[in-house]
Design a protein around this nucleic acid. Structure first.
Lengths: 190, 190
DNA sequence: GGAATTTCTTGAAGTAGTTCAAGTTTTTAA
DNA sequence: TTAAAAACTTGAACTACTTCAAGAAATTCC
């Protein structure tokens, strides 16, 4: 079976066989155990992660010492701290495996030279980023216009299988309300 | 003086003189009067706008009939509904000039052929999108971890000149609190 | 398979915000 | 230059959530 990343790229652009060889020679699959962190606050993030299996979350620890999940990534998503990656500054985030996961980690330097060798790849990343940004615009819309209960039901309706995969308290903080309140929503006690 | 977009592009990539000619021949400057809408909810957005002067906001009208500003764009920013643009679906948003503004509007079809003629441009857009996405990740962080008052002061400290440019009620909704509450924050009555 | 850990639930009390309504100030435009 | 419209302010009442604390249930792992 072909590499999941190559398959994903081919959904958006065409690749010469020689490009595929070049690309594959640069990819390194790595396994990440549940709860393992692949990025910590304060580190400079110089890696992009393509998730081939499992789930990675981006979170912070807020001023009260409580974890706050800001983003989930699952199969066929890229995840990184884009600001730290781009500007070589200390990251504000943690990246951690929610389940035992597998990722393709590409180092910034390697990716940059790959993008020069395979110019077509630029289009792939441009499209992926535009789609991600579009999704983020919608997320802001939902956060701004829906009540906590509406956000929960909306998410539950659209991603029912995903809701099963992550602890409720992580999902609650991703949807920007407390774990206790989520419990009450689920019990119909609001 | 050279086109503001060309100058912006040159900050990120190099362009051959012939590319500049090609590019410039495709650009169309357009003026947008204050309050004029360049996109309405329900329309398919097939244009990207590069703001050369003024300020454009993205907003929605919520279920109570109240406008909610989700994003501002100023000079040297791109603005569009990326989801609608990418998937050719009806937009959920309005785009409207906050001040008399000037934009360079590029139609999707024209941009796509430009990207093929000038492959280097892909890199420009990829980088711009990555930076935008990074900024959005930080915005989510601020929304999730700061109180209304903290968000106001943080924004005020980082973008004092911008705060002067937009009506307070728009800024309040961008920071996700009510105009009345903003008034009280400013008066120190919280 | 049982202890330890992690996750989820529940109710009571508290609070950071909203909503409403009315008045004031500022800006726009003819 | 003035009338109309837009933007801002204020206080009082309200509410959608949070916080805390404690117990119950589920999961993990020697």
């Amino acid at each position: 079976m072909q590499n999941a990343l190559i398959l994903h790229i081919k959904k958006f652009i065409s690749l010469e066989p020689s490009d595929i060889d070049k690309l594959e020679s640069c990819l390194e699959l790595s396994k990440i155990k549940k709860k393992e962190q692949i990025l910590k606050e304060g580190q400079i993030c110089n890696t992009m992660y393509f998730i081939t299996k499992g789930c990675i979350r981006q979170y912070i620890i807020n001023s009260k010492g409580v974890e706050q999940t800001l983003q989930f990534g699952i199969e066929n998503w890229w995840i990184t701290d884009y600001l730290s990656y781009h500007n070589d500054v200390a990251s504000s985030f943690y990246l951690q495996a929610v389940e035992n996961s597998e990722v393709i980690a590409i180092d910034k330097t390697i990716l940059e030279s790959l993008l020069i060798e395979i110019p077509n790849l630029e289009m792939y990343f441009r499209i992926v980023m535009q789609k991600s940004f579009g999704a983020m615009q919608m997320r802001i819309k939902f956060l701004f216009t829906m009540s906590a209960e509406e956000r929960y039901h909306h998410f539950n309706d659209h991603f029912p299988e995903f809701v099963q995969r992550v602890p409720q308290y992580m999902l609650a903080s991703y949807l920007d309300f407390s774990a206790e309140f989520m419990s009450k929503i689920r019990a119909g006690k609001v």
